[in-house]
Write a protein that binds this DNA or RNA. Structure first.
Lengths: 226, 226
DNA sequence: TTTGCTTCTACTTTATACCAAATAAAAGAA
DNA sequence: TTCTTTTATTTGGTATAAAGTAGAAGCAAA
């Protein structure tokens, strides 16, 4: 068993720890990451740390300059704009492909997840909102059948998660729930245009909200972000 | 000067060498890559080799299983289908964005490049065809303004190059030139729909041709590819 | 004899420790 | 202060030990 190839090597463990720390915002944008420091924290030598850093660079979480070390990727307005453009495009495409493959059961499951989001919202359970929100989007994407596309979007989703947490923002949850309802309705109706439109709108609203947030932060104090 | 951060470290050099070897087909799909072998060939220790291997894994050229080593990524029919779907989508999107940003001079340059392709074709200069063909596509993509998107497509283009070379295939050059003419015409006319359609068609035809090729190869002998 | 399982050996990757080179920081001179 | 020189810190690279995997050899059962 255990065909999963993950989590066995130190490199993987360290990469996972660091990725989570970056996504959670414990490691701030532009913060310097030193090999020795990480190695000492996890009681290892520097080699697996270095490999983990390179991996995170490839995933877009770190920037490494030769002989000058790594910093956590900054979050600029341009990043967010570019990011949402790509994500909206890929996700609406995935949704369109998923429409002909998705089962009624999966659509029903999405409906339940959207209900769960509402529930978490009423309990002010931010973690729950984020987790369920992500699962909602994953269901559609996974139904598209294109594995390469699924992996691409998965990475983008992780980075997206980081944007939201670091800028401590979940774009108006009630609006989001309504947008999800529209996505479900379009899937049920098998209306391709309507679906693409709904996914795009959802993405664009998310983008707009984050942009406003980052402008507010940069307006206040030009530190740490950007 | 030299803000370019490339080519200074051994890791970068080795990664570049290996990437080229894979793209050129000197390293065949599924071929095993051993650290020590590469290290000896380039007269280095194994550490920079390993970092290069991890980088190429992230770029999609290698597959690495923990404690079992690396192999050159196989090329399956599914890979090609999935690949073209994504590339067609991203490139048509980039083209659409580029339309409002591209200058008349750049369009004229594209026209010249297309002429060059024709010229290389008449000389049976395959290298020249591929190089100029890539440059043609790069001009559009670079005009789109979304750097993240440009990088994404750049990586896909390199993998695409590999598919074509390894399957020793340049999809009917004369057709391709006509399709390029249509792209140029759509850009001149500032006709968004026509442009997207043209880029998609170009991509789809390329895909169809490669699929036929890989089926022919797999039909003959089930070795080496897949 | 063949097949299937276990044990053992050899090889390859993973991790450690150490050295070299380059950059950043600090100290000294103009 | 500003520029140069020196020192210190950190990354990049080498050499080597440890751990895990694959394959060979040996044995038991069919």
């Amino acid at each position: 068993m255990q065909e999963l190839n993950t989590q066995n090597t130190l490199r993987e463990k360290i990469a996972t720890f660091l990725r989570e720390a970056i996504v959670k915002g414990e490691l701030r944008p532009c913060q310097r990451i030193q090999e020795i420091e990480i190695a000492e924290r996890y009681q290892t030598s520097r080699t697996p740390v270095r490999e983990a850093l390179r991996q995170l660079e490839a995933e877009g979480f770190l920037m490494i300059r030769a002989r000058r070390g790594a910093i956590v990727s900054p979050i600029t307005e341009k990043d967010i704009t570019e990011f949402y453009e790509i994500r909206g495009l890929l996700e609406s495409f995935a949704a369109e492909k998923a429409m002909s493959l998705i089962t009624p059961e999966e659509i029903e499951y999405m409906r339940q997840l959207n209900g769960k989001i509402k529930e978490s919202f009423s309990k002010a359970d931010v973690q729950g909102i984020l987790r369920t929100h992500n699962e909602f989007h994953e269901v559609i994407v996974h139904a598209c059948g294109n594995e390469r596309l699924i992996n691409l979007i998965k990475n983008l989703a992780t980075q997206h998660q980081r944007f939201r947490i670091v800028l401590s923002h979940t774009h108006s949850v009630l609006d989001s729930i309504k947008e999800h309802d529209e996505i479900i309705a379009a899937l049920r109706a098998k209306d391709s245009r309507r679906l693409i439109e709904a996914v795009r709108t959802n993405s664009e609203n998310g983008c707009r909200a984050l942009i406003e947030k980052i402008r507010a932060i940069n307006g206040q104090k030009a530190i740490s972000i950007n």
